[in-house]
Amino acid sequence: MTRLLPAIAATTLLIGGGALYLNSQAGSDVLPLAAQAQEADAQGDQAEAGAESVEITEMTMGNPDADVQVIEYASFTCPHCQSFHETVFPDLKADYIDTDKIEFVYREVYFDRPGLWASMVARCGGEMRFFGIVDMLYDNQRDWVQGEPAEIADNLRGIGRKAGLNNEQLDACLTDGAKAQELVSWFEQNAEENGIESTPSFVINGETYSNMSYEDFSGILDEQLGE
């Protein structure tokens, strides 16, 4: 897969200025950022070479020993992902995750820098706060994605504070260049492995699916579970 955002870590979260690129068409297709990524490839390679080794935590819910694993690939700036989390995910969680029938894994996709910033704020709270912040990001997506880059960053800080994080914690997370670079590399590796080209996408026991209704989702899961 083409490297999508190799310059993100090189320009790491300069949230006070307007020089950052902001993709105004944060839709469901991963591929349009490829041309932008190629322009910044040399800068991204330099940052990658100097980046520290950072471990990325896999964010999971449900039963880690379940026979069925569902991996969601989603972007915090994707309206289709917001719709899925508003209309499908609550039933999926109630019927399959909370009942320990499946293991659910959430993996972020980065269309743009705001999506990366949102991911870093969500991960700033650690595993205990992650999914709560994910809910807040989707519930308020139409509000925090509006404005100039500095405004968006401030909006995300506000969400972080509502989740119980303080300014010092948020500053540390949002200026962690090594973490930003490793998150992008981690996403690229996973997306290539699973053939992810759009969001939301789902990998159910190794097979990749595109966005679907709850009825279709539950049908696939029931078949996998033998129900």
Results as ranks from 00 to 15, higher is better:
143 D>F: 15
156 L>S: 07
155 N>D: 00
129 R>W: 00
153 A>N: 12
132 G>N: 15
129 R>G: 02
131 F>S: 04
171 D>Q: 10
133 I>T: 15
134 V>L: 03
155 N>Y: 03
133 I>C: 01
146 Q>I: 08
150 A>Y: 13
162 K>E: 11
160 G>M: 03
160 G>D: 05
162 K>I: 12
171 D>W: 04
161 R>A: 09
134 V>G: 07
166 N>Y: 01
170 L>K: 08
165 L>A: 11
170 L>M: 09
130 F>M: 05
165 L>P: 13
142 R>N: 13
131 F>C: 11
130 F>T: 04
151 E>N: 07
135 D>K: 14
148 E>D: 09
137 L>M: 04
167 N>Q: 10
152 I>N: 01
151 E>W: 04
155 N>G: 09
171 D>Y: 03
129 R>D: 08
157 R>L: 10
156 L>I: 00
164 G>W: 02
145 V>I: 09
168 E>H: 08
143 D>K: 11
165 L>S: 04
169 Q>E: 10
155 N>E: 07
141 Q>D: 02
152 I>S: 01
134 V>I: 07
159 I>R: 06
142 R>K: 06
137 L>G: 12
147 G>F: 10
149 P>V: 11
157 R>S: 09
163 A>T: 06
139 D>R: 12
165 L>E: 05
141 Q>A: 02
153 A>C: 03
172 A>G: 00
154 D>I: 01
133 I>S: 08
133 I>Y: 01
131 F>W: 05
156 L>D: 00
168 E>K: 09
160 G>I: 01
128 M>Y: 11
152 I>H: 00
172 A>L: 08
166 N>F: 00
130 F>G: 05
151 E>H: 06
148 E>P: 06
136 M>C: 12
130 F>R: 11
149 P>R: 13
172 A>H: 03
137 L>A: 00
139 D>W: 14
143 D>S: 10
142 R>W: 00
141 Q>W: 10
170 L>E: 05
155 N>H: 12
143 D>T: 15
148 E>N: 11
144 W>Y: 01
165 L>I: 12
166 N>I: 03
156 L>K: 01
128 M>G: 14
161 R>M: 05
144 W>G: 07
166 N>K: 13
166 N>T: 14
149 P>F: 14
171 D>R: 07
169 Q>N: 13
128 M>N: 15
166 N>H: 02
137 L>R: 09
133 I>M: 08
137 L>C: 05
130 F>L: 06
152 I>T: 01
138 Y>I: 00
170 L>Q: 00
164 G>K: 03
161 R>H: 11
136 M>H: 03
163 A>M: 09
168 E>L: 07
167 N>K: 15
141 Q>S: 06
165 L>Y: 03
159 I>V: 04
137 L>Q: 11
169 Q>A: 05
139 D>C: 02
132 G>D: 06
134 V>S: 05
136 M>E: 08
144 W>I: 02
149 P>K: 11
151 E>S: 14
159 I>P: 10
133 I>A: 14
158 G>I: 06
131 F>G: 04
154 D>A: 15
146 Q>H: 10
142 R>A: 13
137 L>K: 10
